[in-house]
Amino acid sequence: MSKQATTNILIVGVGGQGTLLTSRVIARVVVELGHDVKVSEVHGMAQRGGSVVSQVRFGPRVYSPIIKEGDADVILAFEKLEAARWLHYLKPDGTLIINDERVDPLPVMSGEAEYPEDIDQELVSIVPRSTVVNATEIAAECGSSRAANIVLVGVLSRAMDLEPALVEQAIREMLPERVLDINLKAFQRGRELYDTL
C-alpha cells in the first residue's frame, strides 16, 4: 500500500463479535509505524446485536475519522451479510475479506426476510480482490471460537503487509494474560491462512 495516501480499513460485523478489539490492535500497530492515525468506533445501542463498524485510517496526515463511500482499501467483515451491507464503501480495487459466519438478523429470525444464503459467493464473484475465510472454526481449533477476531487480525495483517512481531506485541499489550496463548496461536493461524487464499 502507498506510503503517501491515506489507507482506509473498514471492519464490520455484528455487535458483540469483537470488531472493536481488532480495530484497536491494528491502530496500535500503525501508530508504532509512525503514521498519523484516526479510528472511529460504535458504542451504545448498536452494540446490542446491531450492525457495527470500526474504521481505521492512517497516513502522513489524516483529517476525517470516517471513511468515504467507495474509499476503503480493505473491508474486513466478521459476518457475511455485513460484508454485503458495507460493500459500497469498498474501492473498485479494494480487498474484501469475508468471515464465513452467518448471524441471522431479526427480520430473518422472524421469517419476514430471507438470509441471502450464497451472499459470500456472489461477493467473491463481483469483487476482484476478495476471499472467504473460516476464522470461527480456526479459532475453535486454537482453543476458543472467541479468538476469531484475532484470526482475522492475522489475515488482515498479511493483506496490509504488517510486521508480525509488531502485531504480536500489540496483542500481548491488549489482551489478558490468561487468553494470550490461544490468541497468539489464532494470530499465527490467521497469517498462515492468508497463504492458502
Binding site: Q47, L106, V108, E112, Y115, P116, L123, I126
Partner: peptide
C-alpha cells in the same frame, strides 16, 4: 458517489436486539 458493485439481493436490516 458512484456505485461500483451491485448486488442482486436486498440486504435485510440488522436492528439491535436483546442479548
Amino acid at each position: 458517489v458512484e456505485e461500483v458493485f451491485t448486488l442482486s439481493t436486498p440486504i435485510p436490516p440488522r436492528p439491535p436486539l436483546f442479548c
